[in-house]
Amino acid sequence: MSLVRLQDIRKYFPVKRSIGEVLLRTSQSFVKAVDGISFEIKAGETFGLVGESGSGKTTTGRIVLRLIEPTEGTIEFDGKDITKLGSDEMRKLRKDMQIIFQDPMAALNPYMKIGDAIKHGLDIHNIGNTQSERKKLICEMLERVNLQADLYDRYPHELSGGQRQRIVIARALILRPKFVVADEALAMLDVSVRSQLLQLLIELKKEMNLTFLFITHDLATTKYMCNRIGVMYLGKFVEIGTYQHIYESPMHPYTKALISAIPEPDPKIMESKKRLIPEGEVPNPINPPSGCRFHPRCPYVMDVCKNVEPPLVKSPDDRLIACHLYTEKSAVQQQDS
């Protein structure tokens, strides 16, 4: 059964206009942060979101939890349409839906000791019977994220980046949610602590049938966590598949470039490594290119790519791909008709 289902989600942010532009009545333009994406996550499954920086991953994660409203589209959680749910009803769902923010400093109250910040959630949702029981739960959780209990009384600014990140993880997981949006949750950790926390996430996944939307730039970790991975480019999916699909035999030219750019922890390999860095400017989400959004930078660009947007279709090996190289025939027909 699917726990989360997004249908044709769009999010357009208005761009601030200068006084001059307002006076000249230049029309309002929008950053098309998310521009028509659909996917579902089954209970117990982890769906990975990777892709271009600025392609709308965080925006998608926030929309799922209704932290921001979509411009269009529907969100279902646990079989229920929550797109228009009132704030009271949303509040009841909050415990079950947690987010680990990309920027932990911004996610923590600077005036609250980190122990209290974690306890806050326990108080609100009435987990643990006594204060001392709550404190015990917190110390256990701190240990599981590899932090000493002596950090309990520190303030967020008195921690290192990776320590803060682990506090945010602890705060989300201690509530034993059903669903977690993990936005670059392990980005600030060294490889050893990162593996340790991956292990923890995998354990909790088994223990509580936890479901994740796992947003990351670190493709290596998707192998351990993700059942499926969606690759985003400029507000859209270009490819969705398993780790093997994406990592070992990427099909979309953007995915290929992305995989080729991963740095390898080996100086000799790095010296000779060939990267397929796409040419051209980073695209503009205000005026995305016509047709396929990747076409101005694509080494395999064809005429059809400039005009017709490729649909996301199933390939014979069961992945989803949006590229005319693989659907050329049907696309050409579409254009003719």
Binding site: L147, Q148, D150, V191, S192, S195, L198, Q199, K223, P265
Partner: peptide, 28 residues
């Protein structure tokens, strides 16, 4: 040595995670 051993490999079949057990000492 142990840090370098903790680097994940990319082989899809190998799902073993390696890390350095224990935690660092208090800096106080």
């Amino acid at each position: 040595k142990l840090l370098l051993k903790s680097i994940p490999n990319t082989n899809p079949k190998d799902l073993e995670l390696t890390f350095i057990p224990g935690s660092p000492p208090s800096l106080v």
